[in-house]
């Protein structure tokens, strides 16, 4: 799954109720990506995509997590206002599951205003499971 997949595209995923179970086959879900196989032939630039995820109810069980802002100039946003989010442990690998500003010159925003967030199976006491690229912008807000 990719939310905001193509260059300069926008994807929205809104969970209002029910249950989502996602392993995404081994890698964090790109939220705000902008990749195209047609970049070389057709001149589409990478990036500049927007992906928004709203969790306002229900449960999201995501073993592989999220990359917020997965290519240059892309924006990935997750807002949790209610419901339950459970991230990890990764089924296929050991990479960090939550990457806020996952690529150079990208931006990731994570806002939690309600609900429950559980981070499971992170490797060690000093490993939070959260990561940001050094040249990216990351905002994590708990209101």
């Amino acid at each position: 799954m990719i939310v905001g997949s193509g260059p300069a595209s926008r994807g929205e995923f809104k969970l209002l109720g029910g249950d989502v179970i996602s392993s995404n086959h081994g890698s964090p879900i790109p939220i705000g990506y902008g990749y195209s196989a047609y970049t070389v032939c057709c001149g589409y630039p990478y990036g500049s995509a927007t992906g928004n995820v709203l969790i306002a109810g229900g449960t999201w069980t995501g073993y592989e997590g999220w990359n917020l802002g997965a290519l240059s100039n892309s924006l990935g946003t997750v807002v949790v206002s209610n419901g339950t989010v459970s991230i990890g442990p990764g089924i296929y690998g050991s990479g960090k599951p939550i990457n806020v500003g996952a690529s150079d010159d990208s931006r990731g925003d994570f806002t939690m205003a309600g609900g429950t967030f559980l981070m499971n199976g992170v490797g060690s006491a000093s490993d939070t499971g959260w990561r940001s690229e050094s040249a990216a912008t990351a905002w994590v807000t708990c209101e």
Partner: peptide, 30 residues
């Protein structure tokens, strides 16, 4: 499953998914 992909992976696409009940299982690759 690509949400907002543009035609054939092109640009300027828009997609929206809303789930309000039931069970959604995603094991698609990225």
């Amino acid at each position: 499953m690509d949400i907002g992909s543009g035609y054939k992976g092109g640009q300027n696409g828009y997609g929206q998914v809303i789930i309000s009940n039931g069970l959604f299982v995603n094991n698609s690759g990225s």
